[in-house]
Each structure stands twice: as C-alpha cells, then as structure tokens.
Amino acid sequence: MPEPTSATVVGLTAAGLSLFGVATGLHPMLLVAGFAGGWWFNSYGEPPLPLVRRLSSGLIAALVAAWTTPPLIAWLTSLSLWPATVEPTVAGFPCALALGFLTHKVLGPALLKIAAKKVEEAT
C-alpha cells in the first residue's frame, strides 16, 4: 500500500466541513453565506483592513453563522408567527448572511458583556 503524501486538514464532504478528518456538521452553503456577510460588513470599515485580517474575520463570521443558524431557524419556526409557506431550509441562507454581517459588531460585543457580567457575579 502506498504511503500517503499529504494529509487533508480541511475538506468539504457530504457531512459538511471536515477539520483534521472530523466531520463538524457545518453546512457548506451556510459557511459561504456567513463568509459573505462578514466580508460585506468589512467593506464598510473606514480604514480598509489588510487582506489577511479581512479573510480571518470573514472565516470567523462564517463559522459563527454556520453554528448559530440552525438553532436560530429551529427557534424561529417554532414561533406561531412563522409563515407555513416558507421552508426553513430556504430561510437559512439569508439568516446566515445576516448573522455573518452582525458577528463582529453585535454578537461579539454582546457575548463579551454577558461574560463580563458572569465573571463579576462570580467574584
């Protein structure tokens, strides 16, 4: 049997994104929509960010959007206000785009405030 010449670190499979051979279950299209939302947000910055910083913040936005979109869609569809004609799978892409857009300006600071409050309560 031939020796493997390279190891696959990141791969897209039917199970979603795979990191180091472990399937994360993240939907590839939600990752793309989240990355697009993060890239869209970065286009509004006054001083243009360097390319590496734009790419890394886009990747973070993609991961946050792909992880948070399915529970958000599940919660939204459980509400009585959800229209029966809208499929949850279709609503996931704009939701991931919005979550990617809001990752660095809204979700990140809110999470830091909650963490600071928990630390303050514990001490």
Rank of each mutant, 00 (worst) to 15 (best):
P88L: 03
N42L: 03
S57P: 00
V10L: 15
L31A: 05
A65E: 05
F20S: 13
T5W: 06
W82F: 05
H27C: 10
T8I: 10
E3G: 07
V32N: 01
A23W: 02
Y44H: 15
T8A: 15
H27P: 13
W75I: 13
T68H: 13
P70A: 06
S6E: 14
T89D: 14
A116S: 15
E121S: 15
G92I: 04
P4L: 14
L81M: 04
P94F: 03
F93Q: 07
L17K: 06
L55G: 02
P47I: 02
L31P: 07
G38T: 01
S80F: 03
A36G: 09
E87I: 07
K113C: 13
L99W: 01
F93R: 08
G100A: 07
T68Q: 10
A66R: 03
G108E: 13
E121V: 07
T68W: 14
V106A: 15
E87T: 12
P50C: 02
I60D: 06
K113V: 06
S57Q: 10
A65R: 02
L30I: 13
E121Y: 08
F101A: 03
A74E: 15
G92L: 08
L72E: 00
R53K: 12
T13N: 11
M29W: 07
V22E: 10
L17R: 01
A33L: 11
H104S: 10
L107S: 13
A33G: 02
L107K: 00
A14C: 07
G45W: 04
L31R: 00
S18W: 02
K117I: 04
F101V: 07
S80M: 13
G34M: 06
F35K: 05
L59T: 08
L49K: 09
A7R: 15
A36Y: 09
A96W: 00
A110Q: 05
E120Y: 12
T5M: 11
F20N: 02
W67K: 14
P2N: 02
K105V: 09
S56R: 14
A7M: 06
R54D: 08
T85L: 13
H27K: 13
L76E: 00
M1E: 10
V52P: 05
P71E: 07
A7N: 15
K105Y: 14
F101Y: 14
V106C: 12
V9Q: 11
L79A: 11
V22L: 12
W67E: 10
T123C: 10
L49V: 05
E121F: 08
T69N: 06
P94R: 10
E46M: 05
A74I: 01
S80R: 12
F41Q: 10
S6V: 07
G16A: 08
P47A: 05
L51Q: 08
P94K: 03
E120S: 10
F20C: 09
A65K: 02
A15Q: 04
G92C: 07
P47K: 11
V119A: 14
P109L: 06
V119N: 04
A98V: 07
S43P: 00
H104Y: 06
S6L: 01
L49Y: 02
S43W: 03
P48Q: 11
S56Q: 14
E46D: 09
P71Y: 00
S43E: 09
L99M: 15
A14F: 04
G21Q: 01
F93T: 05
L99I: 08
W40C: 14
M29G: 05
T8P: 09
A15N: 00
V52T: 02
L111C: 06
L72H: 05
W67T: 04
W39A: 13
N42T: 01
A14Q: 09
T85N: 12
C95D: 02
